[in-house]
Amino acid sequence: MINSYYVQRTAQAIFTVFAVITITFVLIRQIPGGPTSYVRSQLAQQSGSVDMEQINTLVEAYTNVRPDEPLYVQYFNYITSVAQGDLGTSMYYSTPVSEIMAAAVPWTVFVMSVSLVLTFGIGISLGALTAYVEGSRFDVGLTLISIFLNSIPYYVLAIILVYALGYQLDWFPIGGLVGGDVTVGLNLGFIASAIYHAALPIASFVVTGFGIQALTMRGNSIRVLGEDYIRVARLRGIPPSEIALQYVGRNAILPMYTGMMISIGFMFGGSIIMEEIFAYPGVGYYMFRAISASDYPLMMGAFLIITIAVVLGIFVADLTYGKIDPRAGQGGNRESY
């Protein structure tokens, strides 16, 4: 017998990705007005005469699938090419999808990771602070603000920010990854320009996102503060700062860890609208473009990247949680006997 937990989790992750590829394939084949008929109509418009063989070749070039082959051969070819990293060619940009994605992913990851760190950093600090002064005016005020900001949809805030700070005040750029005058590389100007351009998208994620984290952290901390081991630690004379970090902080943050990993996926999903609003060419931006242009290969490629990011986030959370919380990974399936 093998250690089933890790094997199970790995198999689940692989299966999810595989299922997404399969659904992608089915969608390409079955959606009315799918890529095949799209290519066909394009050619018909261009040349007037429609040569079936030419259509099939073109469709294959774009989507890796030849419509005249048997279904299982098409499926096999599609899976093989995806496994090799060949996601087809964008019809809109006429560039391989993998190239577009390779250029876009780092920018999205950059915005996402900074947003994530800030959201949780601010949320956890404020939550812990309000828990310690539970019931004070600061606690009530901050809780109200957290709830208010959390109830604003991030895209509404994004539009307000881009309108006010971008168009009206002209403090921030209204699009693009970096300024045109910087050289790409690890130099100060480039990094500063990248941060400058990413500031508004990050701000709209963080301002609307930290509230719920602060509230969760506040609740967890208050629960931990009521635990017996806090009382025992105080009686033992452990310094308050150490109790706050080692006892309260650590035990209150642990339950939020999985949520943090899952929100990676949530943010990737949110990037579709966010990057469109800020004209920020990341994964979401291309996804949006692909949808409006019926660019199926690009759409599927972006979709696949987002799925893999979500699955990977949860998978890493599952595997590492046992390392972070010594209680996990042991007690779960313990029967009492």
């Binding site: 081991y229 650590r250 919380d325």
Partner: peptide, 13 residues
Amino acid sequence: MVFQGAQSSFNPT
């Protein structure tokens, strides 16, 4: 002082 629930008297992490 020693308390009743030893499990809850220790920091679990």
